[in-house]
């Protein structure tokens, strides 16, 4: 009885759902309106999707069995695609490391440097790699070099940001200890910050390589080398069996890179 009295006197439980404020309600309405207008803007039509299904079926039917006719050129183009991804990622990672140090709030030599470098990294990250590829094709000509440069710039933007964040989150204790014993800024970065941020660096680098492998396929479509151009030609000439060989090759490359990267991640991050 006493317990019931105590329970009765207790405060009622909080509401399951919070009633949105007027501003919150308005935000919901705007978000919903954006989604609806976007669907309308792209001309989303379930009827056209359904009427296109037979075409899709026909194309997929023509893709099988895959054609082994141009296996060697496809293999070479695939190798070139991977080389572009690897070279671009390695260059991007190497160049992003010093930039990331300058873009780390407590390691940068001056706030102006911090803001300038953060700006450059943001520019590299926000402009899509396809746009960089168009720029480099115009600058250095068609071929994988332009593609590798585009990937390099994209990876500087990607790794620069995540490396800087990893260094900002690194435990300050060891850094303070090295500073207290008179170590220089460079020594603190090399001996305390980078070892602490290394797992994150490895993760980001391997993810960047996976991302670069996928994007290097697309870069070929604008003439920046790799297997993308092979796929485009096959599709344009309605050689769907050949296209399916290329798609399977791309799929295998991406899977191999992802598996290798997962294995490396397990080995390196302990």
């Amino acid at each position: 009885m006493a317990d019931a009295a105590v329970l009765g006197a207790a405060r009622p439980p909080p509401a399951r759902f919070e009633r949105p404020s007027a501003l919150g309600f308005l935000a919901w309405v705007i978000a919903l309106a954006l989604i609806v207008t976007s669907l309308d803007g792209v001309g989303f039509s379930p009827r056209e999707l359904v009427s296109g299904l037979p075409n899709m079926g026909r194309i997929i039917g023509e893709m099988f069995p895959p054609s082994p006719a141009r296996l060697m050129p496809v293999a070479l183009a695939l190798l070139e695609t991977f080389q572009m991804a690897l070279a671009g990622t390695v260059l991007g990672v190497l160049l992003s490391l010093p930039l990331a140090v300058l873009a780390t709030r407590h390691l940068t030599p001056h706030p102006l440097v911090y803001h300038a470098v953060r700006g450059v990294i943001a520019l590299f990250r926000t402009v899509p790699d396809l746009v960089w590829a168009l720029f480099f094709v115009a600058a250095v000509g068609l071929g994988p070099f332009a593609g590798a440069l585009a990937i390099t710039i994209d990876k500087i933007g990607f790794c620069g940001r995540f490396f800087a964040e990893a260094m900002e989150e690194a435990d300050r204790g060891p850094q303070e200890a090295l500073g207290a014993m008179g170590a220089s800024r460079a020594s603190i970065v090399a001996a305390a910050v980078i070892p602490a941020a290394l797992p994150s660096f490895v993760n980001t680098t391997l993810f960047a390589l996976e991302k670069a492998t996928r994007s290097s396929v697309i870069l070929g479509l604008v003439g920046a080398g790799g297997i993308g151009i092979e796929l485009q030609v096959s599709m344009d000439l309605f050689r769907y069996a050949e296209a399916s060989t290329i798609i399977i090759a791309i799929f295998l490359l991406v899977v191999v890179v992802e598996q290798a990267s997962a294995w490396l991640r397990r080995r390196l991050i302990q």
């Binding site: 435990d171 204790g173 060891p174 200890a177 207290a180 008179g182 602490a196």
Partner: peptide
């Protein structure tokens, strides 16, 4: 920095670099 090098500073939480 040269002066600091002559003084050892031991912290409560030792502040070693953990992965090394």
């Amino acid at each position: 920095r040269r002066l600091r090098a002559r003084v050892g500073f031991i912290f409560q939480r030792h502040n070693l670099v953990p992965r090394l």
